[in-house]
Design a protein around this nucleic acid. Structure first.
Length: 207
DNA sequence: CTACGGATTTTCT
DNA sequence: GAAAATCCGTAGT
């Protein structure tokens, strides 16, 4: 696959990677079925000093081991016992940071996505809703823990430019992250309020 | 439209 | 024992 971001992209500053991933396309090849979608929402997680991050303070458990890989690997974890969330690992082995992919606009394999969502959640689901959340996009694309810790090298899971995405640079809006209210730091601005959530195509104001 | 409860595994207290 | 980087169904405004 030639249209594919290489490791030097992922080794950059995590906030920059989070912003620049907007408009790129995430691809997943599973059982011979290709699914893909345009990235429309991301969140940066800044490692050791970010109390909302799984590696805060250097925590290192079996679950988060992939975050200690070099930039350009995947980090997939299960949340609430039922959903998976897909992240891109950034920086290097000494800086366990990542970008959570929160939403996609479906591109390839929409039929497969509809089928996977139906099997799990029942019939009615508009195409727009198929990948409109971190858990939903994993379900729709068939991403699970078997995709954890693998390189984004194009074999199975990768991100790239796609000629079908409009080149025009749409504005990016930054706002606080979702579901991290527990992350409070006394000394400075609480981590729950850091503007590390990025969305392409504004119109809806971030909370 | 918002609010809340339930599902259910990993992690931390 | 409780909460979590979530989602859905139901009940209420």
């Amino acid at each position: 696959m030639k249209n594919r971001l290489d490791r030097s992209f992922y080794e950059q500053d995590t906030k920059k990677v989070a912003r620049e991933l907007l408009g790129k396309v995430l691809y997943h090849l599973n059982d011979g079925i290709l699914t893909s979608g345009v990235i429309t929402e991301t969140e940066a997680y800044l490692g050791l000093k970010d109390s909302a991050c799984h590696t805060f303070g250097g925590r290192r458990t079996e679950r988060v081991e992939s975050m200690y890989l070099s930039g350009g690997h995947s980090y997939v974890y299960q949340i609430y016992g039922l959903h998976f969330c897909f992240n891109v690992v950034t920086r290097d082995e000494l800086k366990p940071e990542a970008v959570l992919i929160r939403a996609l606009e479906p591109l390839d394999g929409v039929e497969a996505m509809r089928m996977r969502m139906r099997r799990r959640f029942g019939p009615e689901k508009s195409d727009r809703e198929l990948c409109s959340g971190p858990g939903k996009l994993c379900q729709a694309m068939g991403i699970d823990r078997t995709d954890d810790g693998i390189p984004l090298d194009g074999g199975r899971l990768w991100i790239g430019e796609d000629h079908r995405v409009e080149k025009a640079k749409s504005k990016i809006v930054a706002g606080p992250r979702v579901g991290v209210d527990y992350a409070t730091e006394p000394s400075h601005r609480p981590a729950s309020e850091w503007p590390l959530r990025f969305r392409r195509k504004p119109g809806i104001l971030l909370k």
